[in-house]
Design a protein around this nucleic acid. Structure first.
Ligand SMILES: Nc1nc2c(ncn2[C@H]2C[C@H](O)[C@@H](COP(=O)(O)OP(=O)(O)OP(=O)(O)O)O2)c(=O)[nH]1
Ligand SMILES: [Mn+2]
Ligand SMILES: [Mn+2]
Length: 578
DNA sequence: ATTTGCCGCCAC
DNA sequence: AAACGTGGCGGCAAAT
């Protein structure tokens, strides 16, 4: 009660949660709170609860809003609105800076030296856990941070208005933080016993391949060690050397594929590569990341982890769950509707960055194609592989997708020929045709490049910024790389904002409707939901309506809706256009 | 025994 | 001649 009385009043409140661990699993050790002239630090559970519940009604300011929100939610007391986040403001202002640190902001904008987290906890042998930090030291640490947050707010707000990122901040990033906290808390169900079975199966297959390789090679070595593998292949077996890496001979999949006919060991190695990659990264790792409390896996979404405004996902990364191969699909099948009588619903934007490229460039050929309802990826596949549109298979469309984006974003003849397994001549022919067909797109990208070079910076349609210093580098290689980043930015970045807008609106509507279905994951241009069967119709209407309505593109926007018992076996529900 | 750089590869 | 972009992560080998 006494602690709660400390936060009465209506001014802005700066909050810093001192925690052990991160995200929803963190343990909150203390709470630094700053408001008006006073700053305090509480550690008693009752006092923290009291402060948290007093704060739950009012907008507060913090550094990483999503992380602080999760810490406060762990105390109970429900959700709250956020007034400000120094982390998100700095991300937008820093034009692509990643995971901005409070101590850097305090130094730059307040000329204030904060004790860094590294200084507080030490490194290497001297490292200690947050819980091992003395209470006085922790209090000082958290209180200073809460103060810094409060004092940074007006400075960063002014700066955001100057640079025109205030719309992004207030309408997208700040409300999105709460949405991401919700999604992380929901988690997603995986079938652990199914994955454990697969673990056994793969272990057996890998062992069998290893035995065979030993026979064929006449020696035992670690197949997972590229260095050892290179020695066996290129020295002992004297296979022709292909690509080189910084440190020796390359043994990547393309290099090996070219040697497939030269020696029976190659096929075995490629098979081993695929199995061991999928086993170690997914089959072994995912069951270990199931939260025993919820029985689900909870990713962490990085809200300031990319240069373009995309989200990132880690611990585990659920944005790179396999889909391409048979085995990959079996892994994806483990992601299932975990609640009784629920189904998975997915919604993916169709050809999203191509639409954006058409919209931004005004290219008449692309615009007309979209207006006619064409699928450009499929059309490209038909052209490249010389098959009728109806006979394009998923793997061909996938390659054509890479060819389309590769071409737009600066891929050369050589790269394209490698990607598609075609000759350099055919690749040159393709690119020539591509750029003469989409000549206005080419002009747009040329202009973009020119302008980027002049300004050292690119700005998206929503005002998102990316600084690329190497645009002015005298080094041709660095400058060229910078130009390709600049050319990619407007499309990737607007796509990221469109789905973010949709997520904020969707979560508001789901909450307002008081329905049970939940948004679980975002995968760049896809949203995954877990929905009671009884709400399927409702979601099949709501989700594409909001996703297609999030932004106006001249091409229109299409969303492909799917439903199924798991993330692999989904059947098409509808394609919705707006 | 933990960090770091590198290689290689999964996804969008 | 090369020169699609955005990420995260596992394993190895060399660094303390
Ligand atoms: N530069 C680049 N961008 C990619 C690549 N793959 C995917 N993207 C970007 C552009 C895509 O529009 C966006 C979403 O990926 P999707 O796999 O959903 O493809 P897209 O929406 O284009 O086609 P779709 O109709 O959904 O199959 O991610 C790639 O290989 N290179
Ligand atoms: Mn898509
Ligand atoms: Mn997608």
């Amino acid at each position: 009660a006494e602690a709660a009385s400390l936060v009465d009043g209506s001014e802005d409140v700066g909050v810093f949660a001192f925690t052990e661990g991160t995200g929803r699993g963190c343990r909150i050790l203390g709470l630094g709170v700053s408001m008006g002239g006073k700053t305090f630090y509480v550690t008693e559970p009752e006092a923290m609860d009291a402060v948290a519940s007093t704060l739950s009604g009012r907008p507060i300011s913090g550094h990483d809003a999503k992380e602080t929100e999760l810490a406060l939610r762990s105390l109970g007391g429900g959700k709250r609105d956020w007034a400000f986040s120094t982390f998100l403001a700095a991300y937008l202002l820093g034009a692509g800076s990643r995971d901005p640190r409070l101590e850097d902001l305090a130094r730059e904008f307040l000329a204030m030296e904060l004790v860094s987290t590294e200084q507080l906890l030490g490194t290497g042998r001297a490292a200690r856990k947050p819980s091992a930090v003395g209470e006085n030291e922790a209090a000082e640490f958290a209180a200073r941070r809460a103060e810094a947050i409060l004092n940074l707010r007006p400075r960063l707000e002014a700066e955001m208005r100057n640079l025109g990122v205030d719309y992004l901040f207030h309408e997208i990033e700040l409300p999105l933080a709460g949405v991401l906290a919700d999604m992380e808390s929901e988690g997603v169900a995986i079938d652990v016993s199914y994955l454990k079975e697969m673990q056994e199966e793969l272990a057996g297959q890998l062992a069998a391949i290893e035995t065979e390789v030993e026979e064929v090679a006449g020696q035992k070595f670690n197949l997972n060690a590229p260095q050892q593998l290179a020695k066996v292949l290129f020295e002992d077996l004297r296979l022709p050397v292909g690509k080189r890496t910084k440190t020796g001979y390359s043994t990547d999949a393309d290099t090996l594929e070219a040697l497939r006919e030269k020696h029976p060991i190659i096929g075995l190695i490629l098979e081993h590569r695929q199995l061991s990659k999928l086993k170690s990264t997914y089959v072994d790792a995912l069951p270990q990341l199931v939260d025993p409390m919820s029985g689900r896996v909870h990713t962490s979404f990085g809200q300031a982890s990319t240069a373009t405004g995309r989200l990132a996902s880690s611990n585990p990364n659920l944005m790179n769950i396999p889909i391409r191969t048979e085995l990959g699909q079996r892994i994806r099948r483990a992601f299932k509707a975990g609640r009784p009588d629920h189904v998975m619903v997915s919604a993916d934007y169709a050809q999203i960055e191509l639409r954006i490229a058409a919209h931004l460039s005004g290219d008449p050929m692309l615009l007309d194609a979209f207006k006619a309802g064409q699928d450009i990826h499929t059309a490209t596949a038909a052209a490249v592989f010389k098959v009728p549109i109806e006979q394009v298979d998923p793997s061909q469309r996938r390659l054509a997708k890479i060819a389309n984006f590769g071409s737009i974003y600066g891929q050369g003849e050589y790269g394209l020929s490698q990607q598609l397994g075609i000759t350099g001549d055919v690749a040159r022919e393709f690119l020539g045709q591509y750029w003469s067909t989409y000549s206005k797109l080419r002009e747009f990208l040329d202009d973009l490049r020119r302008k980027a070079r002049e300004e050292g910076l690119v700005v998206s349609a929503t005002g998102r910024r990316r600084a690329i210093p190497d645009l002015r580098s005298p080094n041709f290689q660095l400058r060229s790389a910078a130009e390709r980043m600049a050319i990619n930015f407007p499309m990737q970045s607007l796509a990221a904002d469109i789905i973010k807008i949709a997520m904020v609106r969707l979560q508001r509507e789901i909450e307002a409707d008081q329905i049970e279905g939940r948004m679980l994951l975002q995968v760049h241009d896809e949203l995954l939901f877990e929905v009671p069967r009884a709400e399927l119709d409702q979601f099949a209407e709501k989700v594409p309506r909001i996703m297609t309505g999030a932004y106006e593109l001249e091409t229109g926007i299409e969303v492909e809706m799917k439903v199924g018992p798991n993330w692999a076996d989904m059947k098409k529900l509808a394609v919705v256009r707006a």
